[in-house]
Write a protein that binds this DNA or RNA. Structure first.
Lengths: 145, 145
DNA sequence: TTATTTGCAAAGAATTTGCATGTCC
DNA sequence: GGACATGCAAATTCTTTGCAAATAA
């Protein structure tokens, strides 16, 4: 993950921002989390390490990480903003969301990616990004019912 | 769209609810809109017809239409809740969203539908629903730039 | 009649912002 | 030192809820 650290440093330099204890902490916690944390969950994690960090700083820093191309927002439709690592080295992936336990599985599927490009071409769209969410019940939860 | 009217009536009967002027109006406006309206936009349309209708009633009625299987929520990631007609007679469709003008195109693609089912099977998920959003710039907006 | 519904305004939840104070460079 | 960041609390935005008055069946 050296690349993202560099991106962080470069962005801070470019925009004449400052490295602060809080920003570094939030950056670290975010990168070491599973990448689907809501702002609230991130804030909880951060507070458990340094309780003096304010919630507004978490919001502000996550916005900043998005601008820097380190994070991006994802919305699963439950009203919460979640963040995912924007690792351009990693393939684009989609999500399977268990509507019972809330678990999120990521997967990469070339056929889908390919077809999305074809569709964009067909409808004369210049594709910038895409999201696909499959909602269902995972094997574990089906057993419990 | 007789089917949805019946679904509405049946739901109201089933739950011992009442047909009210407001509910009928909201139902009509919703069905005759393009199906991607936010609550705010719906409320504006409704107010222009009957300014005495309260915003809370719009929220309450849209929830009710969702429960009745007439509407469902969609989230394009801009923080607004939008509603779409839940017409099970119509094929499932996906969305192309122009990030410049905000226009939304719907399309149906059997290959995608097919592949989603395969993927759910592969990961042992019992698929209940899915959403796919393609974000990009439409042909019209590209010309303007 | 009487349970349901409504509009209003107040309450909530998630997020943003203003500002005095604190911190990085 | 001075610009940038922070924490706090107040402000915003979207949505829900409590309640007295209105209405459908």
């Amino acid at each position: 993950m050296k690349k993202l650290q560099k991106r962080f440093d470069d962005f801070i330099a470019l925009k004449s921002l400052k490295h602060t204890h809080q920003r570094n902490l939030i950056f670290d916690v975010f990168l070491n989390s599973d990448g689907h944390l809501s702002t609230e969950e991130l804030y909880e994690k951060i507070k458990s390490i340094d309780s003096s960090v304010g919630q507004a700083t978490v919001y502000r820093t996550m916005k900043l990480l998005c601008e820097a191309g380190i994070a991006h927002e994802i919305h699963f439709g439950d009203g919460l903003t979640r963040y995912e690592v924007d690792d351009s080295g990693k393939k684009h992936h989609d999500h399977l969301i268990c509507t019972v336990c809330g678990k999120i599985f990521e997967f990469v599927d070339e056929l889908i990616e390919q077809r999305q490009k074809e569709l964009a071409k067909k409808y004369d769209f210049d594709l910038t990004s895409h999201r696909m969410y499959l909602y269902g019940v995972c094997a574990d939860c089906r057993k419990k019912i």
